[in-house]
Amino acid sequence: MPFIEQNFAEPKPEMMPAVRVRGLRTQFGAQVIHDNLDLTINRGEVFGLVGGSGTGKSVLVRTIIGLLRPAAGQIEVFGQNTQANSAAAQALRRQWGIMFQDGALFSSLTVSENIDVPLKEHTRLRAADRRAIIALKLQLAGLDPSAGAKYPAELSGGMRKRAGLARALALDPKIVFLDEPTAGLDPIGAAHFDQLVLDLQAALGLTVVMITHDLDSLYTACNRIGVILKKQLIAGTIAEISARPDPWINDYFNGPRGRAAAFAGAA
């Protein structure tokens, strides 16, 4: 076979990591948040994003999903550049779901109508099919069917988070981003939410990226974690990260709360 016909093309999209960030730099004015940050998230993993307040965890997620523009660097989700304005980049938006911190539900719509918004906008399914999908997503997010008819203001904080998750799952995304999913939940609710994330990940083959301060979530739900330190990101399993000789990491994982969570996670 002639030499030139050999195919050195890029790996197929199916083989690409879910998220690949190279040399990312974000800044607001003169304030640099991330500098030359690299990040790879594999398909099907639950990835926890950790960092002190103000280190730019939310900013990183918002940059990946294109709500913020980076000053420099390259971001690919499933091998597709998110900053391109192409039709493919538009199609990519349907492949991720985002759960904002307090659900970010549309306050003038009921929970069912909230879940219906992406379905109506991006599919041409019949109303009966959409209703069935809404019932399924409520069930998957662990909400009672009666919650569908309620307005966000009538729900508790935990239920709002679940409703936000149900909306994020409406279009069957391949990757979901969760911003502090267990913040403000009681320990039992938080543990249920962690289990829910694991169940969904197993059932739907999701890739999950979650920003969290909850050490229990990190130990029970996450396959790998990433820590934002000095404007860069270090990723690895929790054992690898917590063994690093850095004062912040040491305080974070080996403080009283960290030790308790590690003990519970090992048990």
């Binding site: 069935a132 019932a135 399924l136 069930q139 998957l140 009672d144 069917p145 059932a203």
Partner: peptide, 20 residues
């Protein structure tokens, strides 16, 4: 197996659902 997991979840959501 995935199909059955989804239909199970859907069947569960139907129990206890009331019509408006």
């Amino acid at each position: 197996a995935f199909y059955e997991r989804i239909t199970d979840a859907y069947a569960q959501s139907r129990t206890g659902a009331t019509s408006p």
